[in-house]
């Protein structure tokens, strides 16, 4: 094949596209040599092109999008269930998500570009385990669980326990992430998110924040705050919960919770922003989001 001048060609690939879950799991179990399970390839292709991942001896690529059961969004026994290979653009237009979890649609609407969203998947975003993964903060505050399968069985873990570090998750070798599920929020719950980037569109987040509250104008019964791009992984910040729970959500309480949340992160200086700026944003954005949620509950 004549490559383009200056093009960084992909290495030798062996491409697999199993059509059923059993074929997929069997294939992954028996595969020899390097392999990657891929979905949209929007992280995979740039990673090998850019040299972040190198496969000198070639690589097996197992495309999971031939398995229909891995895509789609449904409501089931009070839970919202998304297949791991559900595309970001499908989340955006899903009536279930728009009605029950608009906070997730809101986050997805600011991710990447329309073109990337038409192929990128939610499972790929989580498995890539970027500290800035934009689906993570809303899913963390929605109390999401993730499920994976191997040829030998199935396991589920809270998303909060899924990330280990940049690019690292608890997924065991030869497993495939299958589902992301979270309880369908009720009328006494509110969730909001925001992100800060150099532009509004098509940038990696400097910081992203999501908050969730249950209760009413007189008392907060439960609270969750999550952030992206402020730690080696997207994180749930539990320290601020006790500041909120059982309290009347007045300005002072919300301000104290925001301050506690910001003092429990350890962001870094990088190309996009300084640690100090991130801390300052963490406090301000959390306070604003909490106030907005209280408004939603009223």
């Amino acid at each position: 094949m004549n490559q383009f001048i200056g093009s960084r060609a992909l290495p030798d690939l062996v491409y697999h596209r199993p059509g059923t879950m059993d074929d997929l799991l069997g294939l992954v179990k028996g595969i020899e040599g390097e392999y990657r399970v891929v979905a949209g390839c929007t992280d995979f292709i740039p990673a090998i092109r850019g040299g972040k991942w190198r496969f000198a001896d070639g690589i097996n690529v197992v495309d999971i999008r031939g398995v229909k059961a891995l895509s789609g969004i449904r409501e089931e026994k009070g839970e919202i269930v998304m297949g791991a290979a559900t595309r970001l653009s499908d989340i955006l237009v899903s009536p279930v998500i728009r009605e029950k979890a608009p906070v997730l649609a809101d986050a997805v609407s600011q991710m990447a570009s329309p073109q990337v969203r038409n192929t990128a998947t939610v499972g790929g975003n989580l498995c890539m385990a970027s500290p800035a993964a934009d689906t993570a903060p809303p899913l963390l505050v929605l109390d999401a669980k993730v499920a994976w399968r191997t040829a030998d069985g199935e396991e589920t873990t809270p998303l909060n326990k899924f990330f280990l570090g940049p690019g690292a998750t608890v997924l065991p070798p030869r497993s495939v992430l299958t589902e992301i599920r979270f309880p369908a929020p009720g009328p006494d719950e509110a969730a909001r998110r925001t992100r800060m980037g150099q532009r509004t569109a098509f940038v990696c987040s400097i910081i992203s924040v999501a908050v969730w509250l249950r209760g009413g104008p007189e008392k907060i019964e439960a609270a969750r705050i999550a952030m992206g791009a402020v730690a080696p992984t997207p994180i749930l910040i539990t320290a601020a919960e006790s500041v909120l729970i059982g309290k009347k959500p007045n300005e002072a309480t919300l301000a104290e919770a925001a301050k506690t949340a910001a003092s429990n992160i350890a962001p870094i200086d990088d190309l996009r922003a300084t640690a100090d700026y991130r801390k300052s944003l963490a406090e301000t954005l959390t306070r604003r989001l909490l106030a907005a949620c209280v408004g939603d509950l009223a």
Partner: peptide
């Protein structure tokens, strides 16, 4: 072809009616 990493959109084609970056997709897929 320009960036080959999904950043520029010069390679946009419609796949089943929807715009995608052809540089971020395997021909086989």
């Amino acid at each position: 072809r320009s960036c080959e990493e999904g950043e520029c959109g010069a390679c946009t084609v419609l796949l089943n009616g929807e715009p995608v970056n052809s540089c971020l997709m395997l021909a086989a897929a």
